[in-house]
Computed example of a mutant assay.
Amino acid sequence: MTAVLLWLVFLAILGMFLVLGYRRNRERFGETFARRNLRSSLFWILLAVLCGVAIEFLPEPWPTWVVVAFDFAVAVIAAAYIIRWSQRRYNAGVLLVRLRPQRHNKRWLFYGGLFFSVLALLQTIATFGAIYGDIAYTDTATRNLWFLCGQAVLQWALAAFLMAAGLAPTELRDRGIYDRLSVLPWKAIDSYRWEGENQSQLIVSASRNFPFFAVCKQLSIPPTQRPEVASIVANKCG
């Protein structure tokens, strides 16, 4: 009964975040983007649930080792993504304008990086406690120790990734809009518009050849850079 109750609470919180995210995206980017973003979120949530259920049906000790392998794989992917940031910047072409770090990037830094840093620190303490504690090195204890190590490595990698992404400026380059998370090619942009006070918010909508994804970016443009940015965007997307 307790496990069922916890799942119900988790699903209620998840549903609340999905509804709030849908309403926020609809107000900011429109109905089409909000629906595609909601479908994307539901797709990945369903995929994660199915994978979790499939792992639970594996015979022991495979569930633990699958989770450990997943933790290290994600950590390696995050590290490789960080290493390739400079290459993606180079591929995006010559720098045209460098903008200050965007508000959503700061949220990645504060909420994401700080959250995972705290988790990683606690997980590291637990891991060293298990290593230096009085434990019997049975197969079960060894698997549990690897599980703790995998969780610590994963959380430190996510913390580093999110904090680095949060500190990154956004750059308008010759081949697209670059930040450390992605490069949005100019040719993929369907439309753009200016909103907000003094028309300082640039919103671009892009098409991708994926059924579950839609891309919208909101960029805060300082008044001193607005004429230059407006000229570049009109030239690249006109």
Score class of each variant (00 low, 15 high):
residue 80 A to V: 13
residue 128 F to M: 10
residue 40 S to I: 05
residue 100 R to S: 15
residue 33 F to Y: 13
residue 206 A to G: 00
residue 179 D to T: 12
residue 153 V to N: 00
residue 197 E to Q: 14
residue 121 L to K: 00
residue 26 R to N: 02
residue 41 S to N: 13
residue 149 C to T: 04
residue 30 G to R: 01
residue 62 W to E: 00
residue 113 G to E: 05
residue 53 V to R: 12
residue 113 G to A: 06
residue 173 R to F: 05
residue 107 R to N: 12
residue 225 Q to V: 05
residue 8 L to K: 04
residue 204 V to R: 01
residue 56 E to K: 15
residue 159 A to R: 05
residue 45 I to E: 14
residue 28 R to E: 04
residue 174 D to W: 08
residue 105 N to V: 07
residue 8 L to P: 03
residue 170 T to P: 02
residue 181 L to K: 03
residue 86 S to P: 10
residue 195 E to N: 01
residue 14 L to H: 06
residue 238 G to E: 02
residue 138 T to P: 00
residue 1 M to K: 04
residue 17 F to P: 04
residue 138 T to K: 02
residue 125 I to H: 02
residue 205 S to Q: 11
residue 34 A to I: 09
residue 12 A to C: 03
residue 225 Q to D: 07
residue 63 P to D: 06
residue 101 P to W: 04
residue 211 P to V: 10
residue 19 V to S: 03
residue 175 R to L: 15
residue 191 S to R: 15
residue 133 G to D: 06
residue 176 G to E: 03
residue 146 W to K: 05
residue 49 V to P: 02
residue 32 T to V: 09
residue 130 A to Y: 08
residue 83 I to F: 08
residue 40 S to R: 11
residue 82 I to V: 14
residue 123 Q to D: 05
residue 54 A to L: 14
residue 180 R to F: 05
residue 81 Y to E: 13
residue 222 P to W: 07
residue 192 Y to Q: 10
residue 71 D to L: 04
residue 43 F to C: 09
residue 94 V to F: 05
residue 220 S to V: 08
residue 235 N to S: 15
residue 200 S to K: 05
residue 212 F to K: 13
residue 208 R to S: 13
residue 230 A to K: 13
residue 72 F to N: 03
residue 229 V to T: 03
residue 190 D to V: 07
residue 144 N to A: 14
residue 160 A to T: 02
residue 238 G to W: 03
residue 164 A to T: 12
residue 151 Q to S: 10
residue 100 R to Y: 12
residue 163 M to T: 01
residue 18 L to W: 04
residue 38 L to C: 08
residue 190 D to H: 10
residue 231 S to Y: 06
residue 143 R to Q: 12
residue 24 R to E: 06
residue 91 N to I: 12
residue 217 K to E: 12
residue 180 R to M: 07
residue 84 R to F: 10
residue 65 W to E: 08
residue 167 L to R: 09
residue 51 C to W: 14
residue 4 V to S: 11
residue 235 N to H: 13
residue 123 Q to R: 08
residue 124 T to P: 00
residue 163 M to K: 00
residue 7 W to N: 14
residue 157 A to K: 01
residue 189 I to W: 11
residue 191 S to G: 15
residue 8 L to T: 02
residue 211 P to M: 05
residue 120 A to F: 01
residue 213 F to C: 14
residue 195 E to G: 02
residue 206 A to W: 00
residue 97 V to I: 12
residue 123 Q to V: 02
residue 58 L to W: 03
residue 84 R to Q: 14
residue 84 R to V: 07
residue 131 I to C: 05
residue 187 K to N: 15
residue 73 A to Q: 10
residue 143 R to N: 13
residue 47 L to R: 07
residue 68 V to K: 11
residue 31 E to L: 03
residue 233 V to H: 01
residue 74 V to M: 11
residue 99 L to T: 01
residue 126 A to G: 12
residue 100 R to E: 15
residue 180 R to I: 02
residue 11 L to Q: 07
residue 225 Q to R: 06
residue 114 L to N: 04
residue 14 L to N: 06
residue 3 A to S: 14
residue 207 S to K: 08
